Computed example of a mutant assay.
Amino acid sequence: MDFTCFWLGLLLPLAATLDFSYHHQEEMEAFLKTVAQNYSPITHLHSIGKSVRGRNLWVLVVGRFPKEHRIGIPEFKYVANMHGDETVGRELMLHLIEYLVTGDGKDPEITNLINNTRIHIMPSMNPDGFEAVKKPDCFYSNGRENYNEYDLNRNFPDAFEFNNATRQPETMAVMKWLKTESFVLSANLHGGALVASYPFDNGVPATGTLHSRSLTPDDDVFQYLAHTYASRNPNMKKGDQCKNKMNFPNGVTNGYSWYPLQGGMQDYNYVWAQCFEITLELSCCKYPREEKLPFFWNDNKASLIEYMKQVTVPGHSPYLTKVIIPEKSQTFSALKKDILLPFQGQLDSIQASNPPCPMIPLYKELPSHSAATKPSLFLFLVTFLHIFFK
């Protein structure tokens, strides 16, 4: 017996390369379970719920402490395949998972990410929609919606107007997930265009809609995040690669400026979960032929990694401080408290201070606002920009 071949056979599952093809539910599950088994110290595979047809909504967590939150370790997430016929992101997430777990301990950049970030990856939020598509198609197909024919990116509570769409199992699972994890930064991956889009997707005159835009109080941060991703994608940053589509300067757009939508996931993340999320449109063709997938991976790999790195600030130690919310807070306001983090070794020489929190109006109270933005339901946004973004 050739013992060399025997040992290579034992090692093959750890070294086998994920192929560039479309992986349906059973194949995707098999891959995720194999990764979770072979890289158990740094991975945790779990389902956050089920689709209408009972398919698991899998999330693979990668990190040094994958099963629990640790103080000072920020929570990051990627969600793909929200529209079932927008497929590139689904496959990129599987290749990103492979890239992360195989790079741990070998690639200093990846090792540092895993040491300092808890990364949650959901390859498919709409597995029923993906399975419903019969063949690749660049345009609209029935697989866009979930099995109940609801567009999941129009199905979340909306901060600006009442959204009476029946909440779907996939949407409810994500909403529950957001309550259980303290996500800081996120992106949801789509197809059909080539652009990084940032909140708001909906709005009112107070957010700038009279000027064909809708901006958050953190617009500078969102523009920076979108530019971080687009600038490292050689085709996205050109802004004009999709025929018969809008041109996007530098591959970036405000969501409302592109087109308004109600009940979107990125607005929900920002308003209700205090998570900075942008939308990444990764391909002009929604469901391209699988031989194109290696090109999409090459175009997006650096962007995917660099975007994750925005959630960590190298050289700093965790720093705890107290934030006091006044009892008589101004109606329709958010609290902002900037925290200047000292470098390691400087904590002892700097005295902590707690200046009064300025009251920053988020929106003016207008008749067009829904109950979602009334003070009793609106969540205060406490922005720690110097902690997570620099």
Rank of each mutant, 00 (worst) to 15 (best):
F6C: 02
F6Q: 09
W7M: 13
G9C: 05
T17Y: 02
D19I: 04
E26T: 11
E29K: 12
K33R: 15
T34M: 12
Y39R: 03
S40Y: 06
P41M: 07
H46W: 04
I48Y: 09
G49R: 07
K50Y: 13
R55I: 08
L57Y: 08
G72V: 06
I73R: 07
A80R: 00
N81W: 05
H83A: 07
L96G: 03
V101E: 04
G103S: 10
G103A: 00
D104Q: 12
K106E: 13
K106F: 09
D107M: 04
E109K: 15
I114Y: 06
N116P: 00
D128M: 06
F130L: 04
K134Y: 03
K135G: 02
S141R: 10
E145W: 07
N146W: 08
N153V: 04
R154I: 00
A159S: 09
F160L: 02
F160M: 00
E161M: 11
E161G: 03
T166V: 14
E170G: 02
A173T: 06
W177H: 15
L178I: 07
T180N: 12
P199H: 05
D201A: 14
G208R: 07
L210P: 04
L215P: 05
T216V: 06
D220K: 14
V221M: 10
A226M: 08
Y229L: 10
R232W: 06
G251A: 01
N254E: 06
W258K: 13
G263A: 09
G263T: 01
Q266P: 10
Y270Q: 11
V271P: 00
W272M: 07
Q274N: 10
T279R: 04
L282P: 03
L282A: 05
S283I: 03
C285H: 05
Y287Q: 01
E291F: 02
K292P: 04
P294Q: 04
K301M: 09
A302F: 07
Q310I: 01
I324G: 08
P326L: 01
S329D: 12
F332D: 01
A334L: 13
K336Q: 14
D338M: 15
Q346E: 14
D348Y: 14
P355R: 12
Y363I: 10
A371S: 10
T373H: 11
P375C: 00
L379G: 02
L379I: 09
F380A: 11
V382N: 14
K390Q: 09
